[in-house]
Computed example of a mutant assay.
Amino acid sequence: MILTDEQIAALTAAERRELILRLTPDPGGLPSLRTIERIRKWRTALMLVCVAALIPWTVYLAVTLPSHYVARNWVATWVGFDILLLTMLALTAVAGWKRKQLVFPTAFASGVLLICDAWFDVMTSQRGGDLTQALLSAFLVELPLAFILIAGPLRLLRHLAVRHGFIHPHMQLWRMSIPIPDLYPDRKLPPRD
């Protein structure tokens, strides 16, 4: 039996989602739910440890770092950073051109690198023309491009989530859960601690 467009349109979001999952072949090779939960817990714990360690470290740096410092490898640092940024932007362009999902992480990473570039350009510039150029570059080029590179994939991710029935069309992306149980429709996810 083939459903008509009208029958599909009459389905609820939950029914459409169930239909999509039933029509999508099992990807195979996925870790067990128990492994997924264990990895999630360990990664969450690692991030919390990093946050806890970074707070006193940041206070320590604020108190102990000199206000003026002559850096070694200055040229290699900036050229290396720009090569990394160039690589990520090129990967984003290729992934976008070929309509590959790799565009999600590369665009997001490129946007973050542009924000970092703007921050360090402004903060390390000498007053006067150097600082003016850094500010103009940050506000006219780097930050707007970073916004496009971060917001675009997030909007596309939300569109895909709505299209595949994972979220309601009016739900915000940050409220969307990772649909792990849907990968294993016949298994139950262990309760969260």
Results as ranks from 00 to 15, higher is better:
83 I>E: 14
16 R>M: 03
126 Q>V: 11
22 R>F: 00
61 L>Q: 11
26 D>L: 05
69 Y>H: 09
172 Q>H: 14
56 P>I: 11
104 F>Y: 12
70 V>S: 10
121 D>G: 01
74 W>Y: 14
92 T>D: 02
128 G>F: 10
20 I>F: 15
96 G>D: 08
188 K>A: 03
130 D>C: 10
124 T>C: 04
24 T>P: 02
28 G>S: 09
158 R>H: 03
32 S>K: 00
140 L>P: 01
152 G>L: 10
91 L>C: 02
138 A>W: 02
111 G>C: 05
190 P>A: 07
22 R>V: 11
75 V>N: 07
17 R>C: 04
140 L>A: 04
135 L>F: 07
81 F>Y: 12
75 V>E: 01
119 W>T: 15
29 G>Q: 08
5 D>S: 10
97 W>M: 08
148 I>V: 12
93 A>D: 00
158 R>Q: 11
137 S>K: 05
100 K>R: 14
153 P>D: 08
28 G>C: 03
89 L>I: 01
179 P>Y: 02
114 L>I: 07
43 R>I: 10
124 T>L: 13
127 R>T: 04
148 I>R: 02
123 M>R: 08
108 F>S: 12
114 L>V: 06
23 L>C: 13
10 A>M: 03
51 V>E: 06
154 L>R: 05
187 R>K: 15
59 V>E: 07
133 Q>Y: 00
45 A>L: 04
39 I>E: 15
15 E>I: 11
109 A>P: 00
51 V>H: 04
16 R>D: 05
61 L>F: 10
13 A>K: 09
67 S>Q: 10
52 A>D: 14
161 A>K: 04
113 L>I: 07
147 F>V: 13
184 Y>V: 05
113 L>W: 05
175 R>L: 09
120 F>K: 01
158 R>N: 04
192 R>G: 06
132 T>Q: 13
96 G>V: 02
93 A>W: 11
146 A>E: 03
51 V>T: 00
21 L>A: 05
190 P>Y: 06
144 P>Q: 02
123 M>Q: 12
169 P>M: 10
154 L>F: 12
58 T>S: 12
65 L>N: 06
60 Y>V: 12
102 L>A: 06
109 A>Y: 09
181 P>I: 03
160 L>P: 00
150 I>C: 02
61 L>K: 06
23 L>R: 14
44 T>W: 15
19 L>G: 01
91 L>R: 07
169 P>V: 06
187 R>C: 11
66 P>N: 09
183 L>N: 07
159 H>S: 15
43 R>M: 15
193 D>R: 13
68 H>N: 09
127 R>D: 15
127 R>L: 14
50 C>V: 15
27 P>Q: 13
167 I>S: 02
134 A>K: 00
150 I>V: 09
132 T>K: 15
41 K>I: 14
135 L>I: 11
120 F>R: 08
31 P>N: 02
162 V>T: 11
87 T>I: 09
73 N>L: 10
147 F>M: 14
156 L>S: 04
190 P>D: 04
118 A>Q: 02
100 K>W: 12
156 L>A: 13
193 D>W: 00
50 C>H: 12
76 A>Y: 00
18 E>A: 14
51 V>D: 07
17 R>Y: 08
160 L>I: 13
19 L>E: 01
155 R>V: 05
107 A>G: 09
71 A>Y: 05
77 T>S: 05
141 V>L: 09
79 V>M: 03
